[in-house]
């Protein structure tokens, strides 16, 4: 079964869009992340219920027109977000 990725719960993050960049404060680590697209879009798409990687790609394509997302690259991005605590697996 493919892993399900969920965004960290809303109360765990402070998300402030600045311009093309978004500032995200991760409460559990006290670390600020300055991120560009598609990270905010990924977090919104995953939501608290979560998606598998293929489902996420489909959702990003539908909602944000990111049709060229490649699975390996997006998977690597997700792993970084998991390491940072912004996304959880299982």
């Amino acid at each position: 079964m493919a892993a399900v990725y969920r965004a960290a719960p809303a109360e765990a993050l402070r998300i402030v869009p600045l311009d093309a960049f978004t500032a995200i404060y991760h409460r559990a680590s006290g670390i600020t992340h300055l991120v560009g697209p598609p990270v905010p879009e990924i977090l919104t798409a995953l939501g608290p219920d979560g998606l598998t990687l293929p489902a996420l790609i489909a959702r990003l394509g539908d909602t944000y027109d990111l049709l060229d997302a490649d699975e390996a690259a997006l998977g690597a991005r997700l792993d970084e977000l998991v390491a940072a605590g912004l996304v959880r697996t299982a």
Binding site: A28, S29, G30, A83
Partner: peptide, 16 residues
């Protein structure tokens, strides 16, 4: 309080 947050996150990172 902030120090506590950082310490617990470091423990979590080591756990992972």
């Amino acid at each position: 309080d902030h120090g506590r947050t950082l310490a617990l996150w470091e423990a979590e990172a080591a756990r992972r």
